[in-house]
Design a protein around this nucleic acid. Structure first.
Lengths: 209, 209
DNA sequence: CCATATCAAGCTGCATACACCATCGATAGA
DNA sequence: TCTATCGATGGTGTATGCAGCTTGATATGG
């Protein structure tokens, strides 16, 4: 996995929490490369909105205030609603295969209260539903804002794990049913509804900094 | 204006047409800097989808095939429809001021068949309507895909200038009327409809490569 | 004449050195 | 004692040299 993806996942997993300073030199030594490729990754992360680079100061992980939280989740809901307008129906079989594996794994993850495992399952679901989107612009945007959102719910996952992971299984099962009926539009609405559920579940725990 | 914006505008203005090779060394000499900041700009443009970097070959401006054309315009239509869901009503007065100046300038641009001037007016309208969007995620996406779309209609602007610029004035006037009524939602639908008009006007001239 | 191997040129990717900037603490003066 | 200034420190921004890759021209053998 590349430097960009590694750092991005660490931010989403809160291994690098908001406000954390990321020193180029330190990361360069860890990845056994020079500062150049590390800088490239950090600049891309800044473009994603996950980090902020200030000359002479350093690179810091961006804070997520109440405004950003609401903006991102509301936008993701609208984006998901659009999935049905651009269905990539040819991908349905492969997505169904992914979802099958995903639901099987989810039971074990729930028993173990394996939060990192749950985070990975969400990545897989995101990747799978992305394959159903037949419009590249929408698909890219869908993925882009997933990575902005996932660290938000992960910041309170220890307090909502049971409900959130139960809903996750329900969401995956509903998507399977919809896809077996060939109804990609339903997938978008299912996802939209579960984003809304998650948003309302997170909001009480989410205090602006 | 920065290196990134300069190169981006040259791509959108077809000064750098699809397929054009952008040599880092050459650009570095033009901007009187080293390759490093040029590389930074080119990498960001690649992330935008405007260029493609291949090791050992060089950086080329991406081609726009029929698929990309349809994806981008369809997506932009959907994005514009969402504007009304996140109105930044406080910006209405300043946007009205921008639109006034814009409509005044447009008449002269139409008389002169000033295509670059028309291109600039579109930038201004894009920037002004962006200020009406109260959701940062939507605003960023709205801007991002504008720059992917504008070089497409600009590639055939010489053949559609009269109709396109006439519609532009109508669009701006309709937006003024909507904003005077405080109806930001209407702005999104006006823009959506004019994107659709433009798309159908372009399609006949647009041949896949 | 054609196919293939080889080499040279030009490009990007990376490593490194240095310049510039922001910050904090020490120190001297009021 | 408080304040202002200066310097040390650690960070990012840039320039530059070199390594590795791609591609096209060229030479060579069939």
């Amino acid at each position: 996995m590349g430097i960009y993806q590694t750092i991005r996942d660490r931010i989403c997993l809160l291994h690098y929490p908001p406000g954390k300073k990321l020193a180029e030199q330190e990361l360069a030594e860890e990845f056994a490369v020079s500062r150049t490729p590390v800088r490239q990754a950090l600049q891309r992360l800044e473009y994603d909105g996950l980090t902020e680079i200030r000359n002479g100061v350093g690179t810091t992980v961006t804070a997520v205030d109440r405004h950003a939280f609401e903006d991102i989740f509301a936008f993701r809901m609208r984006i998901s609603e659009l999935i049905g307008d651009f269905p990539a129906s040819a991908e349905i079989p492969s997505v169904l295969a992914s979802l099958g594996h995903l639901i099987d794994t989810a039971e074990q993850v729930r028993k173990d209260t394996d939060m990192v495992g749950f985070w990975r399952l969400n990545h897989e679901l995101q990747e799978a539903t992305g394959r159903l989107i037949g419009n590249r612009s929408l698909r890219d945007t869908h993925a882009r804002y997933y990575f902005l959102a996932c660290r938000i719910w992960y910041s309170v996952i220890d307090r909502i794990f049971d409900e959130q992971s139960a809903d996750f299984v329900v969401e995956a099962q509903e998507i399977v049913k919809a896809l077996k009926a060939g109804d990609v539009r339903a997938v978008g609405f299912i996802q939209r509804n579960h984003i809304a559920l998650g948003m309302h579940r997170i909001a009480p725990y989410f205090h602006p900094e």
